[in-house]
Write a protein that binds this DNA or RNA. Structure first.
Lengths: 120, 120
DNA sequence: TCCATAATTCTAGATTACTAGATATTTCGA
DNA sequence: TCGAAATATCTAGTAATCTAGAATTATGGA
């Protein structure tokens, strides 16, 4: 990922509806959600949501899959990973202590509430 | 952090100069960098940089400290942590496997190159 | 107190982004 | 093949953001 792409991805996240969509899809997990379902859940008009879903997808923050005439969307963990990776590239300035607190976020909020067989 | 604040923080990151500044300061580590030094390093006019530093600081992505007549800026790890925490809130949908890859980013890019006494 | 340095604030013209109405496309079922 | 459902695209008026010139504030030294 280069700087232009990263800026574009952060732009995708800097709008209320789109940020809500990503969080909703992260919470939805592997099941994903239908496009109309997402629009309904967030109280946004269908065409506006379609535009915003497209922007998120172009940024590789979400993925989609068609089922019949509806389309399901999912959080794209690989894309999110790429973004965080770019941001934290060469971080810390060699000082582990500066960077470590960021790990706690994911460990606490995400993994601790899952089962405890920490394979890391 | 609420959604409005998170949007505002992502907006702060969705501009090339500001994203470059945050990465630069993450790489600089605890030493930080002077305001003029940052502007010089990125080839941005001093008043434009000042505006952008202010936006990053309002978003709690960087901190500042005055030394005589110059001002040093530092990455604000607590602010960054808050943002990631908000984004990943209630993630995974109970499926640990969906979320775990995000940890690798920080573990690989940031901590593995530090000493190996993994206290997690 | 006066000057130079370092950084910030004010401002406006130019660019970019957002929303929603209207229309188009895709798919399924009858 | 026709109609309905689900979603996407086009468009334009409105709103927000970006940059840099000019002026301002804060600090330290002579």
């Amino acid at each position: 990922m280069d700087i232009e792409e990263a800026v574009s991805v952060f732009s995708a996240l800097s709008q209320r509806t789109r940020l809500e969509v990503l969080r909703l899809l992260l919470q939805a997990g592997p099941e994903g959600m239908g496009a109309g379902e997402i629009a309904g859940a967030l109280g946004v008009r269908q065409n506006t949501m379609s535009t915003n879903l497209n922007i998120l997808q172009r940024s590789a923050l979400i993925r989609s899959e068609r089922f019949g005439r509806s389309i399901r969307y999912y959080a794209d963990m690989a894309g999110l990973r790429g973004l965080l990776s770019f941001l934290m590239e060469d971080c810390c300035g060699g000082e582990r202590e500066l960077c470590a607190p960021l790990l706690d976020v994911l460990v606490c909020d995400c993994l601790e509430k899952a089962d405890d067989q920490s394979s890391l």
